[in-house]
Every structure is written in structure tokens, then in C-alpha cells.
Amino acid sequence: MILAKIFTLSAALLFGVSSVSHAQVPTTWNNKQCAVVLTYDDAIDVDLDNVVPALDSLKLRGTFYLIGSSPVVARRLPEWRRAAQRGHELGNHALMHPCDGSLPGRSFVTSDTDLSKYTVSRAVSEIRTTNTLLNAIDGKTARTFAYPCGDLQIGGVKFYDQLKTDFVAARGVTDGLQTPTQVDLTNIDAYSINGQSAEYMLDLVKKAQQSHTLLVFLFHGVGGGHPLNVDLKAHRQLLRYLKAHEKDIWVAPMVEVAQKIKAAQLGASTSKPRE
């Protein structure tokens, strides 16, 4: 009798936990196995020449992190507006793309765009100015931010702390697959792609499917246009796989995925019993 009760209790716990985990994770990912976010940095010509047409042809949507001062933004503003109208997110990648020039390997940083020489107030002001510009392009107020060069601090101070109410979330540059509860919305992990094969990217997607996690790709050049580049054919293979498995993979702009994660994290925190 005692053994029967123990078995019944064990089975209830086993199946109960299993059903909760399998119910909660897919719900966060729009009732699918995982979420994949395609992000493209720096507002370069290939975004509009190669990427947007490729995404549109498969009815997939991505996030384009625009540098406010980029001449490609000014010169091709109507095209960015049309991209936003088709569901792509125009994210904020700061006004001047400032990076910390005091760090190793930063010889490309100029004195005008050296984050280590910024004040926090200047960084915050420039990022908010870029939000104003983006709002004038797409008419939207909800969007995400991407740290230029992945730099989080100025003089030891995290400047994004003053911007949390301006954005839904911020994307970083650290590799990682994460469950909804593991995601830090102030610094979302992303896999930077520079020369990796289609097989490498597809393997990441399959791992995300198996682990029910968030996978964020960080691209610069696609078929050229930037020193950090992915082959056009490899990028196309990734998109085709995502489209072929869209019943299992939620592909959406960062802002939509982040909003879902934010709601899930808020729900989890409010449901915890008080001590």
C-alpha cells in the first residue's frame, strides 16, 4: 500500500513537472519549439540590397540595428520605411556607433567615436536622439537597442541603466542559447557570424529546437559590404531552413520576442509564493 502511494506520488510529480515545462516553454516561443531572431547591424547597403529582399521573399522578418548618422539611413530613408511597414524592426544602434577605444584591438575607433571619452549623459542623449529619428521613419515607439561593439559601460557605469524605460530590451554580443527565465533583457546573448558555414548556423538552430531556447544571430555584411561577413549562399540556406520548419521555429523581430520574454518573466515573478 505504501509502495503504491509512493509510486503514484512519484508519477504525479514526474508527469506534472514534465507537462509544466513542455507547456510553458513553447507558450513563450509562440507555441513553438524555440525562437530565432535575425539581427543585422550598422545600416549598410547590403541590408536593403540583399537581406530585406531575401527575408521578404520567404515572408520572414528581422531586426535591423541602424546607426543614426549612417549615410545609408539618410540616402535610402524611404526604403527603410518600407521595410518597417513590411514588419521588420528598425532597432537603435546609437547615433555615432561609439566603441571603447581604450580596449585592445580597437585601433579602428576614432577620437570622435571613442566611448571611453563620452559622458554617460552624452551617450544617453545620442541614443535618445536616434530613437526620435527612428520614430520619424517608422512611427513606432517600441523597439530594442544593440550595444555598439558590445560595450556596456562608460567609466564603470552601465549607461543602459538610464535607458531601460526607452526600450523593450538590449542585445549584446555574447554567445549563448537561453531559456526565457535565463534571458537578461538588458544584455541579450547573440551569436556573431563572420565567415561561419551554413552547417554551423543550422547546427545552432537545431540545438535551439532541442533545448527550447532563444537563438539570436548577429550579422553585419551579407554577401559583402562589411569586413565582418557571411556568404550569401550560406545565409540563404539558413533562411530556407527556418522557412521549411516554421511550424516549429518562431522567427520574429527582437522587439516581439523580447516583449514575450518580458511578459513571461513578469508572470513568473508575480506567481512566486510570498515567504
Rank of each mutant, 00 (worst) to 15 (best):
A4L: 03
S19G: 12
H22W: 15
T28Y: 06
A35F: 02
T39A: 06
D45Y: 11
D49R: 15
L55W: 06
S57Q: 04
L66W: 01
S69T: 05
R82W: 14
G91P: 01
M96N: 10
M96I: 07
D100Q: 09
F108L: 12
V109G: 02
D112F: 14
D114S: 01
A123W: 04
S125L: 03
E126P: 03
E126W: 04
N131Y: 05
A136Y: 13
I137T: 11
K140A: 11
C149L: 10
G150R: 10
D151P: 02
V168N: 02
T174R: 14
T174H: 14
D175S: 15
L177R: 03
T179C: 12
T186K: 12
I188H: 02
D189R: 09
A190G: 03
N194L: 10
N194Y: 15
G195H: 11
L204Y: 07
L204I: 07
Q209C: 13
Q210S: 13
F217M: 05
F217S: 03
L218A: 14
F219N: 05
G223R: 09
G224L: 07
P227N: 10
L228V: 09
K247I: 06
D248S: 13
P253S: 08
V257G: 06
I261D: 07
K262E: 02
A264E: 00
S271R: 15
S271Y: 11
E275P: 15
